[in-house]
Nucleic acid binder design. Sequence first.
DNA 1: TGACAATACAGACATATGTCTGTTTTAATC
DNA 2: GATTAAAACAGACATATGTCTGTATTGTCA
Lengths: 221, 221
Amino acid sequence: MPTRSTPKASHPRGPIRSQVLAFVRERLAAGSPPTVREVQQAFGFKAVESARQHLEALVAEGRLAKEPGRSRGYRLPAAGGPAANIRLVPKLGRVQAGALREAIENPDRWDPEAWLPVETPGTGEELFALTVRGESMTGAGILPDDVVIVRRQDTARDGEIVVALVRDEATVKRLRLREGRLELWPENPAFAPLVFAPLVSAPDTEIRILGRVVEVRRRLA
Amino acid sequence: MPTRSTPKASHPRGPIRSQVLAFVRERLAAGSPPTVREVQQAFGFKAVESARQHLEALVAEGRLAKEPGRSRGYRLPAAGGPAANIRLVPKLGRVQAGALREAIENPDRWDPEAWLPVETPGTGEELFALTVRGESMTGAGILPDDVVIVRRQDTARDGEIVVALVRDEATVKRLRLREGRLELWPENPAFAPLVFAPLVSAPDTEIRILGRVVEVRRRLA
DNA sequence: TGACAATACAGACATATGTCTGTTTTAATC
DNA sequence: GATTAAAACAGACATATGTCTGTATTGTCA
């Protein structure tokens, strides 16, 4: 009669392996992948090798990737295509326009109120997040209190939704380039568009483009 | 005359520290935080301690957090309460209703088309994501091709937005409980509400609640 | 210039961690 | 029951990694 405390061996190739995968995924998203021994503990294995066998099997199946030798070297199979490029983006919050400019230009000394996990293809892009105020973009499905994730850039193309600094006020609008003019259109008939003379945005002008909205998020209580 | 190759010591409390922070953030988002020696190499320090001092200083300043003793133990300052509980949620895609049911009940054997990083407070919640079809919820700011993140649950409260299985068709609607009836209301005047007799959803009924929408996401190209 | 603090360096140590070898247990199959 | 493959176990080893102590360098300020 064995003294095994865990009945986990009863499944030939059962869900334990998938549970290990899920565990690694969780830890990966939470900050860093687990060590082999952490997997061991989490599943109550009495030997390190038990955990390692599952991990290596997952690697062999292509469901996990790893960097051999490194500690906490298990990764998501980046090649396969699933979510590999996750970055944490600082949420600058309901910040005033002036502070926004400061925060975007000196992101290092800014203390974000939160960090949002965002999946992004590029590595060089500079991203930040903002909470939307007002109802000027409801027509585009952007409601008050929605969070927009913004790719920092000084210019944008016609039709893109941008975050702009207008006379020291930050707003989210759709950009229109018409006959040499730069226009910011709300997506709500109750609001009027803003029209500006210069075609390009530049520092020390009344309008300046801070970035392009690449994602919209809304949490429902 | 010193033989220092790096002029990095010229700034009393300068941007090097912030560069280290940025480096840690990058590596953190890329998969796992760096080791002290990886920071050392990245900045060309000739001693491990140089890197460690920067890291510890960042921790002391509250700009970084750490789990002492652990390898790759540097984290983002989760102390404030923000993004600590990030999970990867399977996106089941534009799946047919029948397959949806199968996928939700047997998540292990389902191969999701993608994984989304989601910040969630609870650990026990079962989450999945779906791509929205149709324009029936545009009034609630949910547009076609938006991704909804759903907390799996069999019941819901009046006014909540739910994912329901109606005669083997999956839809997103707002739930209304009126005079003993269960109603699914679109948020678009061009669509009509669905009304059902039973107050609670149950298997093998013409209507069944699969979960509650907890987040909406939209990626802008 | 001299004192002082911050930073960088050098070397070592204790531990965490990945990895290996061999054995035992479990479950399935004939 | 015997055979077999998968899984779990036990113990050890080599290395990666965090940490410590002491010293040297650099820049600042009086």
